[in-house]
């Protein structure tokens, strides 16, 4: 038994009852549902919203749904490598990255941040209740084929270069790509 079992359980495993069968729903007789694609627009760089994006993207891919995440504005900062401290070419771009550290492991909460106290507690709680971190979920999502598409305009505005970004990102694209996908067969989510 690994160390991850005990804490979230109400009772230790030894005190379990004998197994009770749960009802298994009938298989739907109609032909299989044709799944639409999912398009998440990850606009925010806030910890809690990035978490939501990663949970939905990894679950969607796990359900066999073609999943794309368009990353733009503050949401693009999430996909800068964790070890990049200052990014950009001119002083304003550099100052922006200095004021808001990029990378998925350096996200702040939109409320209750309290100079990092809030995120610290969130990470502690997540570890205690075995909630996967945004970074773990991102890795699982990438492994399952989720496409992360950076916004070209935001990359230019923040002076981000392809080598600043994490591995496995798709080619940068623009708003027309997003609208094109939305009007075809993707369910859009704006986070």
């Amino acid at each position: 038994m690994t160390a991850m079992t005990a804490t979230t359980l109400d009772r230790p495993i030894e005190q379990a009852d004998s197994p009770t069968p749960l009802p298994v729903p009938d298989r739907p007789s109609e032909p299989e549902v044709k799944l639409k694609d999912i398009l998440i627009i990850n606009y925010s760089g806030d910890l809690e919203k990035v978490w939501a994006t990663m949970i939905l993207a990894s679950t969607s891919a796990a359900m066999g749904v073609k999943t794309r995440v368009f990353v733009t504005f503050w949401g693009l900062q999430v996909f800068v490598r964790d070890d990049r401290r200052i990014t950009g070419e001119n002083w304003m771009q550099k100052m922006m990255s200095a004021m808001q550290r990029p990378g998925i492991s350096h996200r702040k909460l939109s409320t209750m941040d309290f100079f990092g106290m809030g995120p610290w507690m969130m990470r502690k709680l997540a570890a205690r209740y075995h909630v996967a971190s945004p970074k773990e979920l991102l890795e699982a999502a990438q492994e399952m084929g989720v496409e992360f598409i950076p916004c070209q305009m935001t990359m230019d505005m923040f002076g981000l270069k392809p080598e600043d970004m994490i591995d496995g990102m798709s080619e940068p694209a623009g708003a027309a790509t997003v609208i094109g996908l939305m009007t075809e067969d993707s369910v859009p989510l704006f986070i």
Partner: peptide, 25 residues
Amino acid sequence: VKDFVAWCRSTGNELIDQSSDGVVY
């Protein structure tokens, strides 16, 4: 319990048995 039913329905995999001992599903 609900999630695996939904997951099987979307993916076409077949849930053939499920049980619980009050702790582990």
